[in-house]
Amino acid sequence: MNLAITLRSELLKTKRTSAFYLTFFGAFFVPFMELLEMLTTSDSVARLYADPWQIYFKISLQMMIGMILPLYMILIATLTAQIEYRNHTWKQVFSSPQSELTVFISKFLNLQFLILLFLLLNVTFLFLAALLLNAIDAKLDLFHKYLDWQHLVALLSKTFVCSLAISSIQFWMSLRFRNFILPLALGFVLWFAGIMMTFEYKTIPKEWYPYSYLMMIAFPNFEHLHLILLRNALVLMCLFLMGGFWDFKRRKGKG
C-alpha cells in the first residue's frame, strides 16, 4: 500500500520530463531506421521474402537489444535520478513520511516501468513498420507467413531479465553521484568494454560481465550461456540493489 502511493508519486514526477520523452521517441528510432533502410534500398526487402517475420525481427531486434537498449538504460537511469538533484528536492523527499526503503524501491520500479515501456513500444512500432512494408510490397505477404510468437516472447523476457543487471548498477551510480556525467561516462565505458569483450577480447569470462549480457542475448553463438546469464543477472541485480540501498540510506541524497 505505502509502496503503491510512493510509486504513484514517482510516476507523477516523470510527467513532462525528458525521461518520458526519451522513452517514447527513443522507441521510434530502430523501427524508423529499419523502415528507412527497407524503403530506400532495393535488395533489403527481398532479403526478407523467405521467412519475413523471423528475418525482420532478427535484424531489427539485434540492434535494439544489443545496442540501443543498454544506451537507453544508461541515459534513463541518470535522467530519473537527476529529477531530484536538479530540483534540489531530496531533502523534501526525505522529510516526508516515506521510508527510505519505499523511496528506493519505488524509484527502481519506476525505472523498470520505463524500461519495459520502451521495450514494448519498440516491438509495437516494429510491428507497425512491418505492416506498412507489407502494404507497400505485397510480395512480403506477411499475413500468411508464420510468426514465431513463442520465440519472440521468450527473447523479450530474457532481454528484460538480463537488462536488470545493467539497470541496477546504473541506478545505484545515478543515485550516488550528483554529477550526471559520472554515471553516464562510467556506463558508456563499461558498455563499450562489453562490446569489445563479446566480440574481440577474451580476458574476463564474459558471463560475469553484465554489460555484455544483452549483446550475448541478441547475437547468435551464445545460446548455451543464456541460462547462466539469466541467473547471473539476477544475482548481480540483488547485490547491486542491496549495496545501492545501503549506500542510499547512508547518504540520503547528499550525492
Binding site: 502511493i5 508519486s9 507523477l12 510527467k15 513532462r16 530540483n87 534540489h88 513520511p97
Partner: peptide, 30 residues
Amino acid sequence: LKKVGTLIESPSFYGHLTARENLNVYRDVY
C-alpha cells in the same frame, strides 16, 4: 513526519510540473 510540514533551505519543488501537480506528487504520501 505525517504531522510535520517542512521547508528546508531553498524552496523545493519540481520545475517541470505546475503548482497543482507539485502538490499532487505528495498528496497521497500525506
